Simulated scan of single mutants.
Amino acid sequence: MLGRQAFEETPARHYTALLMSLFPYLCNWAKLGNANEGIQMMGQAGGLVFSVMITWLFCLCIDSDFLKATILSFAAFGYASSGNEKFGFYGKEDHEYNNGWCWAVPWSLATVFFAAQVGLQRAGVIQGPYGENCSEEVQKIET
């Protein structure tokens, strides 16, 4: 019932992002093969929080709202580089689940990428966020 409501309340252009929100949970489920590991793969890195953040980020990308995507990516970088997961290399610290750097590097690269897109939008090279400079064809698809 929750899945049906999610699709009923979500604009059709965001269906892909909604489906991608399942990815962190599928990763956790696949990793549960070893009883000793549990959900430590994404559990410590915040599988639920990551799922919400990545869904939100995909929706922002679909809408070409790169300024908000830059801010969200920077916040995700801060989240990934804090807490139980410290920067370091796999197996070099006192526990083997030291994967904070594995999350922090992609989030920092995403921050730089989205910031570049904001610059291109302000320069008029690419289209602005959905709704502001939205073409008539896209608006017809939505209605």
Rank of each mutant, 00 (worst) to 15 (best):
A104W: 03
G43F: 05
V125N: 02
L57S: 10
G131Q: 02
K31D: 15
L120I: 07
T70S: 06
F23T: 10
K86T: 05
Q127M: 04
K92N: 10
A110F: 09
H95N: 13
A104G: 05
Q44Y: 02
N28Q: 15
R122P: 02
V52L: 12
N28K: 09
G38W: 12
W29L: 15
Y130M: 03
V105R: 06
G119D: 02
G38D: 02
L60F: 06
C27M: 10
Q44S: 13
G131N: 05
G43C: 11
L32T: 10
Y97M: 13
F113D: 01
A35M: 11
F74G: 11
C27E: 10
N28G: 14
G128Y: 11
P129A: 02
N98C: 11
V105P: 04
G78C: 11
I71H: 00
L72T: 04
L60P: 03
S81L: 06
L67A: 12
R122L: 08
S64P: 00
W107E: 00
S64H: 14
A104F: 04
D65N: 15
Y25W: 15
G124K: 07
W101I: 13
S108M: 14
L19M: 14
S108G: 08
I54R: 01
N28V: 09
V125D: 05
E85G: 01
M41S: 14
Y97V: 04
F58M: 07
N28H: 09
Q117F: 13
S73A: 12
V112C: 13
K31I: 10
N99D: 14
S73N: 05
S82A: 13
Q121W: 12
D94W: 14
Y25K: 01
W56H: 11
A30D: 02
G119W: 01
F114V: 00
L18S: 12
V112M: 15
Y25A: 10
G46H: 11
S73R: 06
D94S: 15
L19G: 11
A76S: 10
W101G: 04
G43I: 08
N36C: 00
A35W: 08
T70A: 05
C102I: 15
D94R: 14
G38R: 13
T111I: 03
H95Q: 11
S64G: 00
L19K: 09
A30V: 08
F74T: 10
V118H: 10
V49M: 13
P106H: 04
G43P: 11
N84T: 12
A80Y: 01
Y15C: 00
A80S: 12
A30C: 11
G78S: 02
Q117A: 15
G47P: 06
C27F: 08
F77Y: 13
N98Q: 06
N98I: 03
S64M: 07
C61G: 02
G91W: 11
G83S: 01
Q117G: 06
F113N: 09
